[in-house]
Write a protein that binds this DNA or RNA. Sequence first.
DNA 1: GTTTAATAATGCACTCAGCG
DNA 2: CGCTGAGTGCATTATTAAAC
Length: 287
Amino acid sequence: MTAKFPSLNALRVFETVSRTKSLKRAAAQLGVTQSAISRQLSTLEQQLGAKLIQRDNKVHALTPAGEALAPELTRIFRQLERIVTHAMREGEQLQRQINVAISHEVYQFWLMPALPEFQQLYPQIELNFVQAAEYIDRQNEELELQRLLRNEVDILVAFGNAQLKTLVASALCRPKYALLQASVGESDLVHIAHQILPTSLFRETGVTAPKQNVARSTLMGGMIAQQQNQALLVPAIYQPQVTRLAHEKAQVDMEQPLTAWIRKADEREFGMVAFLQWLEHRGRKTS
DNA sequence: GTTTAATAATGCACTCAGCG
DNA sequence: CGCTGAGTGCATTATTAAAC
């Protein structure tokens, strides 16, 4: 005898049979064959270790065990129906656009490869992408986060750890930098705007502090680094198009986690919850 | 990540029993 | 004896777990 918890379907089958007083009518109501109903019932009775329905060739009556179970199940399934109907209505509201502010690099080298998966999961949600800074620090946080507060965008994805009362920040992952060096040994670093350099970097890698080269983005930094034989810090989650530039690679912890900022007011909004949870899932997968 | 194996659920076609 | 509804054997399909 299999003594495991009965399936929801088997309980639903019994509940329907108890209401319709017939396997055939229950089958019609549930859109399956009578054979399936019969088997679901016998499996359920086997699992419960008790007969629920008195039957020879007709459903005659419920057994005491059945009488005890049926009204409770009816009540619970009614409640379940209300909950599901409600969820379906919420699901319709899910149909919406989300405006995502994100840098070219994070988009192309981290997010884009997985986007088809998201679109398959939530075809109702349309994502619009607009350009944002790759890194957020004290100097540009006001400018970038204001776009959320002014409702220009719904979510900002970038490296940084800025906090604002009216915004919710979720760290998606805390990646490491890959140190890309054009040539082995000591070399200057191309500094990418708003990148906070880890304190351990110079001690551990022998790279010298950046001088005048400040790039606006990782892509620009990559070009400068190649041309001028310099080193560059690139989030290791950028795979593999950017890191291919590397001759030698050392890993250093990033000070700024990859973060998603949203408005507090949108925290419980269905589409946003779906997108944010998916981003967090993707963050866990890539860190 | 893909293939293979095991298991559960289901449907079809049939049988069986009760009833008028 | 024919109709109706419940039960069963067998084949197919879907799902999950295991192996590679």
